[in-house]
Amino acid sequence: MPIHHDNSPPPQAQTGAPSILVRELNYRYPDGFHALRGLSVAIAPGERVGLVGPNGAGKSTFMLHLNGLLSGEGEIRIAGLPLSKEKLPEVRALVGMVFQNPDDQLFSPTVFDDVAFGPLHMGYGEEEVRQRVAEALAAVGMADFAERMPYHLSVGQKKRVSLATVLAMGPELLVLDEPSAGLDPRGRRQLIELLDGMALTMLVSTHDMRLVDELFPRILVMDAGQIVYDGETSAVLNDDAFLRAHGLEKP
């Protein structure tokens, strides 16, 4: 299937505020490790951005800040909202966050319960929740697994269900931490098509440079807690020396 880029403006574009705005973000883990060193970035509504960088660069750490699960020094605004205590529930409804490790994402007795968790806690009624769960599971090709136990799925299946858990919440912003890791070629292709068909703001970390090339016109390269490149994907993918310097390679 040919890849097409849907560039129609998403609904919330008019509000003007960037989807993600981060200024001078610094974070130290409790053990003192300085994981984020002065990160600044702005992502406009509807933009799709790839986040790459070597292991330990701080990608996951950065993503955990985007719905207030970690809070470092600096400013973060999501769709114009600060991550204050009062605004957090609102922000979390906007940000669909999928963790790197699906075992952290899935915690309910059945796949259905796990996917229903988000919409249920957002306050939707039973009918609506059921419908959202069905749609989300269908979107990731896991409709037949609703009654299974999440712990007993394969890694790739867990990954898909993880994605469904946030799709069911109808977020405006997808933050995905290595969504294609562990997927078989068909699953990966389905993921690319699924993401490509959604008019959402996306920030997706990955080591899969081909995925970046296909989906993300803009790329952030992180290394050692800093953003070392922020710009057009095509430019970076042709700079062999730069890629090698940051442990990356051409697709």
């Binding site: 529930p89 952290d104 919440m169």
Partner: peptide
């Protein structure tokens, strides 16, 4: 800790 985070991320209050 991380499971708790995941629950919070999906609206657990």
């Amino acid at each position: 800790d991380r499971v708790y985070m995941a629950m919070q991320a999906r609206g657990y209050r």
